[in-house]
Design a protein around this nucleic acid. Structure first.
Lengths: 114, 114
DNA sequence: TGATTATATAAGCTTATGCTTATATAATGA
DNA sequence: TCATTATATAAGCATAAGCTTATATAATCA
């Protein structure tokens, strides 16, 4: 029946999205706190378009939400996503990324709008 | 450090493998009980090589194990996999596939070697 | 042993994915 | 208003993934 099919589709789509190392790490980070694109570019040491494209996929799936603050757009995990519980469950198996944020702080690259 | 990298690789690889609807459903089934290839062909209504290739990927990752019984090879979830706990967690979000096995029974296509 | 059934592997094709470069849009500040 | 900074989008390319068909291997049985 279509209900089950949809649920299966949703779960497999979520796993497919998080089956990418960059996006999986992103979700681990964004589950803990919001980050702007330029912070993620620094953390993942990749290009800005690459980061934007990953975020776009996560956002299209409803897994993250955005929050503009002036010239920056901050992304964070979307707690209203139907997949949120699944995501919280599985990122518990992902190594902590706290060191990445500490690195940013050390380099003075942390964006703060408070 | 390399320990964390490896763990991240393992989790993302597992999610990537289960980010396919067929393999995700297979794991849900094989977590509950072993099935042979021809049963899975019937359940997924796809070709035998397609099923074999999915099983090969799951086996290469250590997620399932095989058990030959005469001309049949039965596959089941590998409880010794380092990813087993993660898998059990996430397949809890996958709709039950019990009806598929009941269908097989009804059609008399269930293989039994007991 | 030869035929049959179950499974695996290989090759080829099509589509999906992730990256890059180039360019567009949006907000800020001199 | 113009230059700068942040982000998004588009196009193009290389690689990966899943399916199909054809063929190989393995076990069973007459």
């Amino acid at each position: 029946m279509s209900f089950d099919l949809d649920e299966l589709d949703e779960v497999s789509q979520t796993l497919k999205l998080l089956g990418d190392k960059t996006r999986l790490t992103m979700m681990k980070l964004l589950e803990k706190q919001e980050c702007c694109v330029c912070e993620l570019v620094e953390i993942f040491k990749t290009s800005q378009p690459a980061v934007s494209q990953h975020l776009r996929k996560l956002k299209d799936a409803g897994l993250v939400k955005e929050n503009r603050k002036g010239q920056w757009i901050f992304y964070s995990a979307n707690p209203d996503s139907m997949q949120h519980e699944l995501i919280q469950n599985l990122i518990a198996f992902v190594p902590s990324q706290d060191h990445e944020l500490e690195e940013l702080d050390k380099k003075g690259l942390r964006i703060s709008c408070d």
